[in-house]
Computed example of a mutant assay.
Amino acid sequence: MPKKLNSVQIRVRSICRREFERDVYRPGVISLSRLVWGSLGSCLVLAAISLLSKAAGIAVLFPPLAATCFINSSCVYLRVARPKPVIVGHFVSSIGGLAGVWTGELLAGDTDFVIPLKLSLTLLYAAVLMQVFDADHPPAAATAVIPAVLPLPMPAWLFPLYMAWGATLTVLFALVWNRIWLEFPAKDDDHRVKYAGLYMTRAQVWGMALCLLSMVLMSCKHIVPALYFLGLGGMTLGVLLLGTHHFVEALITRKAGNH
């Protein structure tokens, strides 16, 4: 029987499909399913990213991706766990981070204010970009601010693409891991119709598919460099499709409403 302690519910039940439904597989509920399946999924995907990053020679920032791994495995019904916010969020926050660092150094130079200014500007830019591109993903805020205090492990121009590579890996794992027990991405108020078996719009499915393909191509960096560069271009296009389709849909809806 589930036990309620203040605002927290404790469920002492074996792992089964019921324990992965929206009302119980969520923050605020301590259950065997989240403790085992959610936690195990988080650690497995981060380990996979670490191994593949080293093997492929594609450096990423692990702290923000670790937070993404947790959300994708343990908080799957949140909007921030959907593929679009995960991939686009890390991509645009990387750009915001680079812009904030550049602006901070331009304005404060070698003064004592340069670090606080860079930290605040990187987060400001990332917050604006994530909202504009409908990609609110809290872990991506860390992606933005880390360059303000630590050197990047990759050339600056590759930073957004490499973080999108890592984010796409988390999405791939979440699709496989979560769908053993539940629908992922989850159905919500904005995604009630399936396309290709997923609660995503057509543009989101194609954008995600392009990112997944590009992630594989980028992983061929040491094997076939030409495929790696093709993957960089494909990842850019995939993120653009994921991050801008709502603007196109809004224009189409507006034009249809005027007729």
Rank of each mutant, 00 (worst) to 15 (best):
T122N: 06
L51G: 08
K255Y: 10
D136V: 12
R179S: 15
L51P: 10
A59K: 02
T122V: 04
D23K: 13
K221F: 09
L106Y: 02
L161F: 14
R11K: 12
E183S: 11
R17G: 10
L232I: 14
G166T: 04
C43K: 09
G109T: 03
A108G: 05
R179G: 06
M163V: 09
V76A: 03
Q204L: 03
P185M: 08
A148P: 10
P225D: 08
R13W: 06
A55G: 12
A196Q: 11
V114E: 07
V45F: 07
D136G: 14
L237Q: 10
V24K: 02
L251A: 14
W177L: 05
V76Q: 06
D134E: 12
V171P: 01
R17Q: 13
N258L: 13
F184A: 05
L242I: 06
L158Q: 15
F173S: 02
D188I: 00
E249L: 11
K3S: 13
W37V: 14
Y162V: 10
V145D: 02
F62T: 13
A55I: 10
F173C: 07
G89E: 01
A141L: 12
R79K: 13
E249H: 11
I49S: 08
L182S: 06
I223E: 12
L169D: 04
G28A: 09
W165Y: 06
Y77P: 03
A203R: 07
M218N: 09
D189E: 15
A226T: 15
D134I: 05
G109W: 02
H222E: 15
L217D: 01
S50R: 10
S93Y: 02
N178H: 06
L121E: 09
H90P: 01
H246P: 05
G97S: 03
L32H: 12
Y228E: 10
L98R: 00
L230Q: 10
R192V: 13
S120N: 11
L124H: 08
A203V: 07
A126T: 00
S73D: 04
S73F: 00
A164R: 04
L35Y: 03
G238L: 07
D189K: 14
A144G: 07
V224W: 10
Y195F: 14
L217C: 11
D110W: 03
V80P: 07
L106T: 11
L123M: 15
V76F: 00
V205R: 11
V60W: 05
P116T: 03
T68H: 00
V248C: 07
A144N: 04
S33L: 04
V12F: 13
G104K: 02
S73I: 00
A142D: 12
P83D: 03
S50P: 13
